[in-house]
């Protein structure tokens, strides 16, 4: 940095005309910055990727991808076939069965949801689906172990894994899940509850610590 040793008249921009120019340029730059920030945050309403994704889904429901999946009993079918064969609204979450962190709380949330669905007799209207994004490790025995660990009732709660590990990217992109490998074979991922209607559209994404809202949205869709 050099000191301002030049007299003001020799420093560019500091004449009266230059000050007007600078005023104009500053105003334009300020307007452009604010416009950019306004656009990037959807008018100041979304500062995180997660809120952006949720408001996008709420505005326009997105079709779920048609991927080949396997359930805990080893039955392989496409996701849309399973969707068409099931008239219920689904609440979908994404897990990996080795998970020792956030999916533990997701598991507890789903256990509570399962209890509430059974209690209120909603099992014909709302189904729970856990999808593994770790097809390399989550095979049928791993799914079975997961199902028995959480006491899944197959008529309420099912767990699926991808039949083709190569489909993982498509699955995650379609639901807007970001998975980051973490030490000790763990993954860091955003946990949420995804409400999928009977037509196979992702209609709402709800915080994983707000299962009551997910259930209310799901039951409202079946009315």
């Amino acid at each position: 940095m050099e000191p301002n040793s030049l007299p003001a008249t020799e420093r560019p921009g500091e004449s009266a005309a230059g000050l007007w120019r600078t005023f104009l340029a500053s105003t334009l730059v300020l307007a452009a910055s604010l416009g950019l920030l306004f656009a990037a945050t959807e008018g100041g309403s979304a500062f995180t990727t997660e809120t952006l994704r949720r408001s996008a889904v709420m505005r326009s429901p997105q079709p779920i991808p048609d991927l080949q999946v396997i359930d805990a009993s080893g039955v392989s079918a496409s996701l849309l076939e399973r969707r068409a064969a099931d008239p219920r609204v689904w609440i979908v979450d994404f897990v990996y069965t080795q998970c020792a962190s956030v999916c533990l709380s997701l598991g507890t949330v789903y256990q509570r949801l399962q209890a509430e669905i059974t209690e209120r007799g909603l099992q014909d209207r709302v189904g729970l689906v856990s999808v593994s994004f770790d097809p390399a490790r989550d095979d049928v025995p791993a799914l079975q172990a997961y199902a028995s660990r959480w006491g899944m009732k197959p008529q309420v709660w099912q767990v699926l894994t991808l039949a083709r590990p190569g489909d993982r990217r498509r699955l995650l992109d379609a639901f807007g899940i970001m998975v980051i490998p973490a030490p000790l074979g763990e993954f860091e991922h955003n946990a949420a509850l995804h409400v999928v209607d009977a037509a196979g559209r992702l209609v709402r994404i709800v915080d994983h610590d707000d299962p009551g809202r997910a259930l209310a949205i799901a039951t409202a869709l079946t009315r």
Binding site: R11, G13, T22, V29, S33
Partner: peptide, 13 residues
């Protein structure tokens, strides 16, 4: 530089 008296435009950008 004439559009950037006192570095004001630069600061804002």
């Amino acid at each position: 530089a004439r559009w950037n008296a006192y570095g004001l435009t630069g600061f804002i950008a």
